[in-house]
């Protein structure tokens, strides 16, 4: 049973086997190439989508940066809500709030001049409930 000598339809068995092998290989390569080509097209497509999305995000980030300018927000909140930069005497830290609240309970409506505590411990000037707090205007638009 020597495959180099045995012939099938006058062709050596070895050659038939080799030809079959080559066909199988060629088909395999064809499959792999087609697959790879499809994958590559998909990757390129996704890359394009990513680039497009990135371009859009960039545009949106630029728009956000433009819209969120502190100066613009300040102008709008002043024009539509009547807001103003907070006065320094109305600032307080969360830790100092209890201290600020205590004297206010005892003296419900102290005169503004008495408000700044004479003794040292209160570090922040007490924000007096504003007698004429700025009324929030309705957004005019």
């Amino acid at each position: 049973m020597n495959p180099f000598k045995r012939r099938v339809f006058g062709v050596r068995l070895f050659e038939v086997a080799a030809f079959a092998c080559v066909l199988a290989l060629a088909f395999g390569v064809y499959l792999a190439k087609t697959n790879a080509g499809r994958e590559r097209a998909r990757i390129a497509n996704i890359d394009r989508q990513i680039a497009e999305e990135q371009r859009k995000t960039k545009l949106l980030r630029a728009e956000v940066a433009h819209l969120e300018q502190p100066e613009r927000l300040g102008r709008l909140s002043n024009a539509h809500l009547g807001l103003q930069p907070a006065d320094g005497t109305r600032e307080a830290l969360p830790e100092t709030l209890p201290e600020i609240a205590r004297p206010a309970e005892k003296k419900p409506r102290p005169a503004p001049s008495n408000l700044l505590p004479k003794p040292e411990p209160v570090p922040v000037p007490v924000p007096e409930p504003a007698p004429e707090a700025p009324t929030l205007e309705k957004p005019t638009r």
């Binding site: 960039k58 630029a62 956000v64 940066a65 969120e68």
Partner: peptide, 9 residues
Amino acid sequence: GSLLALDLM
């Protein structure tokens, strides 16, 4: 991290 300048298409 606020954006100051960028390239746009």
